[in-house]
């Protein structure tokens, strides 16, 4: 995987629910630390845009969809376990 690849994320949240807020914060930190300058984040509120959630089959919130690089992956939860998230993104653990 190219080190230059851009990560495009779409994060589905449920209004200002605590775990959704936590996910936004966790994602922001993760991107800043591990993917500086090569990420895009789109946040979708399922309460405001339920049709989109329905169309995308988002039932659990928060859900992070990794649009690029392929394949499309879904990560559910507050993203608090950074190791798991990095593994799912295919990023080597910098700390290790």
């Amino acid at each position: 995987m190219s080190r230059r690849a851009i990560f495009r994320f779409r994060l589905y949240v449920a209004g200002e629910a605590p775990n959704s807020m936590a996910a936004i914060a966790n994602l922001a930190v993760l991107c800043r630390v591990h993917l500086p300058d090569r990420y895009e984040i789109e946040i979708v509120d399922v309460f405001r845009d339920p049709k989109r959630a329905l169309a995308d089959s988002i039932f659990m919130t928060p859900t992070l969809v990794v649009l690029t690089p392929p394949p499309i992956r879904k990560i559910v939860g507050t993203l608090s376990r950074t190791q798991t998230v990095l593994l799912a993104l295919g990023l080597p653990d910098i700390a290790a």
């Binding site: 775990n19 996910a23 988002i58 039932f59 659990m60 859900t63 939860g77 798991t84």
Partner: peptide, 17 residues
């Protein structure tokens, strides 16, 4: 992939619609 807590708000929002 699951990382941390989540809820069913997405489901309920979709169902609501």
């Amino acid at each position: 992939v699951q990382s941390g807590d989540f809820d069913l708000c997405g489901l309920l929002a979709a169902l609501e619609a």
